[in-house]
Every structure is written in C-alpha cells, then in structure tokens.
Design a protein around this nucleic acid. Structure first.
Lengths: 253, 253
DNA sequence: TAGTGGTCTAGACCACACG
DNA sequence: GTGTGGTCTAGACCACTAC
C-alpha cells in the first residue's frame, strides 16, 4: 500500500484515507490477512492515530475489516447472505434454518412490545432467546415474546432452559399463522446481544422485528439483531442476489 | 438532565453517558427540542468533548438525535416506517409511493452490477437516478441500472434529464415481471448519495439491492440507499409494525 | 510480558448556518 | 461576526490476547 503521504485536499483526511485503504485492500491483501497495527499505519500515512481509526471504523462498518482487541485488524471476507424469509410465512423454528434455542424465561416485555401483544404492562410473557448460526458463526441473537394466552398448552412456568424454549416453539406451531409483518432498522447491540454475537456493546446491528398474527391477534413478536458488519439480509425467493454494497460503491471509470 | 458527575465505573464513560442522555431525552426533552452544545454538555458531565461526542454519535446512529453543523443537536422524532414492498412484485415507478425520477445518464455500471445484468464490463447502461420523498423529506436515493436490451423501445441516447428517466421506467413497465430478489445491508453514503439525502458523506445508510427478473433474465438492478438514522424499512402487508428498536431496548424493570 | 485495539484527554482549527 | 458541529493532533492509560 506504499508510503504515500496525503496531499492537502479539501475533503477530510479520514475520508481520503479510507479510499486509499479500500483500494489497497482490493489490490494488495487477501481475505484474513492481518494489517499493520494502528500506530504503524498512522505513522506511515502521516496522520494521528485517531484519524486513522476514523477511517478504519468506516471500513469495519462496511464489512471490509474486522478488528479484535489484543489481536489485530484483519481483512474481512465478503458479507454472507442470510435469508430472512421474504415470501413464505412461517413460524420461527419450523425449519432448520440455523436457529437454535438458547433459553427461556418469564419476564415482563418492554412497554412497546406489551402494547403490540395486547398484554398488560408489566405482565410477564414467555421470552425465548435464540441464536442463529450460519457457517459456524453466530450471526443473530433473537428475543421472541410469547404471551401465555398464545400457548395455552403450556402449564408449568419455565425452567429457564433450552428444553422449555423448545416447548414454547412447539406449542406456537400448533396455531395457524395468518400473517406476519417485518421491519428492519439500524441499531446498536445491547450488552447481552453483543456478548451473544461476540461483539463489543454498541456494535452496529440490523434489527429485524417480526409480528406474528393468528386469529386476528398478535400472538408473538420477535426481535432479532443481526451483525451488521458480517451480514447481508436477503428477502428474495432464491437469495441469489450476489452484489455487495462494497462492490457497488466502486463505480466503473 | 442535572449536573451529575459520572462515578468511576468499569464500563466505558461514553457508554454510561449514552444511557444517561438517553434517559434524559425520554423524560426531559420534547421532539425537535435543541440540546445544549457539545462543549457545554461535556463540561456539565466532566468529560472531554471527544468522549461526549462518542455518546452522541451512538444516539444519532440509533435515530434518537439529529446533529447539524452550524445549527446544533436536536431530539429526533421516531423513525418513520418506509414500505419497501414485502409481498407484491412490482416495477419501480408503477405506483405513487414517493419515488420521483431525478435524471438519467448512460454510464458503465460497477463490475458487480454488469455481471448481474449479463452485460459486458464497461458497456454503458441506462442509469436512472431517483429520490424517494416521504413526509416532505428525502429518505432514499436510488440508482436503477437498465441495459439497453431490456428497453428496446428506446432509441435515442438519453438527454440526461428527468423526462428520459421517465421514458426508461415507462418502457420497463411493458415487460412482464416474473420475480424480484431483495437484499438489505449496512453501508455508508457515497458523496453523491449523501448530497441527495442531505447528509455528510459516510453517513450510515441501509442499502437495498433489488434484482428484477423477466423472461428468465435479470433485466434491471436497483440500488437504493435509505437514511439509516430516520428510516425503518417495513416489509409487512400493512406496515403497521409500530415498535422501534429504541423502545425495545428499554427492557421493562 | 509484549503487543494489540479501545478509551480518554485537552487542546486547536475548520466549515457551515444564521442573524 | 458568533456559535455550532466536524476534523485533527499528540499524547496517555486500559483491557485483552497470545506467547
């Protein structure tokens, strides 16, 4: 990537730096390769470390880099496409799509969720925690809120374990699914989700909120947080859209 | 929000600060209200301005704040739900959903797009630029790539204006749409998109890539960048999912 | 123990909006 | 001009990983 000094340009240094690094990643580095450390890079480009970090942060946000404390900065592989079910309506857990229950507890959902579920604020509901694992990596952490009224077959209060989580999902599948609504937005990982995703708290995540409707009522709400750095959410029938935004950004000359 | 000094805690100051500010936003501020400036806030909390900014950046990423240079920091309204068509397959521009053509030019698409379209690298295609305006605000900027072969009705090379963009869309609608695939990922705004969205370059955006299929071939590819700070993408039939991640984060006590 | 990225400081100057 | 957020610097120390 050379020892190029940055010229005096009207655009921010970190922005220019990002471009230079991005090009270098394409031409001079392999996926998984480790970059020189931040102090070294900053010196090489003649900028303060904070400025360099601003460029690295953007590249990490775009999924080009992966940084791990105590280890170093490596070139990230292209984002993996993760299907989040565009067409077919289905209950969570009905297919082997990489989701696996982690645990379950009875807890009062956030006020907004309680409102959606038509539950009294503060009333505890089944709260199933799941992980989605793709290519050996945890790509999403989910909380599924199920009011007791949706799964009347369950009597005993949960034992907080994966078996009980599976029982809740099993009961849910007995209902006829009439429809579901989905929304995607940007968020930052809470401490618990971050731990599950092997990221630091505050890491950028894509939050997928799903509302399950049966019998004209909202019977469950799922909030899944996907790692924004490594995932591309796909909705198509085949999921074969193979463009990454990173490639799109490099306009042809 | 008081003059509380931060105690010595094991968690990062900016993270704690974010929590404090978030609570203050809920209880002591109205939407649109302007916050004290950064130097004032930093002094009030006894931290360096850079540390305070780290907290503000996160809150802006989550759509809680809006910062404008030369103006100040204001409390953002809840994110608006923007429908990106979950069920119905439709050509772009077929309904009055807020999209409006801005211009059109003949240009060589990025290599990845050319590959998808089955076009030779470097071969120019119709490139339609559109804006999506919702509630008076530009929420998305889109580039729609249409190879000449997909719209044989068009003869003359474009005049780079909105009329020609409309002509391309009109011709596209003559084809029978067989299917479409969609993907969503996190990106940062290029300079041109940022300008269209009234944001600074590098602002976080949700990139929606759509592949349109007709006659077994990919006849068009659209890359739409949505403002991640102000938008929640909805895919449901009615789009009535009203939870925001911000509300979800505040777990009930 | 050595080396990495993560956090934090106390300044400085710049670009932009508004009166 | 004045005040705002945006950029940048040159340090310091901390938390974590791996040897």
């Amino acid at each position: 990537m050379g020892t190029t000094q940055l010229e005096t340009v009207p655009e921010p240094k970190y922005w220019h730096l990002k471009t230079v690094l991005s090009d270098a990643l394409d031409s001079e580095f392999e996926v998984g390769e480790i970059l020189p450390n931040e102090r070294e890079l900053a010196a090489r480009f003649g900028v303060a470390r904070a400025t360099l970090r601003q460029a690295l942060e953007q590249l990490e946000l775009e999924g080009r880099l992966q940084r791990r404390r105590g280890v170093g900065t490596t070139v990230a592989p292209p984002r993996m496409g993760v299907d989040v079910g565009g067409e077919q309506q289905s209950w969570p857990g009905s297919t082997a799509d990489g989701w696996q229950p982690v645990g379950c507890e009875e807890a009062a959902p956030p006020a907004a969720i309680a409102r959606l579920l038509g539950a009294r604020p503060g009333e505890p509901v089944h709260t199933v925690r799941r992980s989605r694992i793709t290519h050996g990596q945890t790509v999403a952490a989910e909380l599924l809120y199920v009011p007791g009224g949706s799964v009347p077959g369950l009597t005993a209060i949960g034992d907080r374990g994966a078996p009980h989580a599976r029982a809740v999902l099993r009961e849910l599948r007995r209902l006829e699914l009439e429809g579901q609504e989905r929304a995607v937005e940007l968020g930052s990982a809470r401490a618990d989700d971050a731990k599950q995703l092997d990221r630091l708290p505050g890491a950028p995540v894509l939050v997928v909120t799903t509302r399950y409707v049966s019998g004209g009522r909202t019977v469950a709400v799922a909030v899944a947080t996907y790692r924004a750095d490594t995932c591309r959410l796909t909705f198509g029938e085949t999921g074969s859209v193979q463009i990454t935004h990173h490639e799109e950004s490099r306009r042809a000359s």
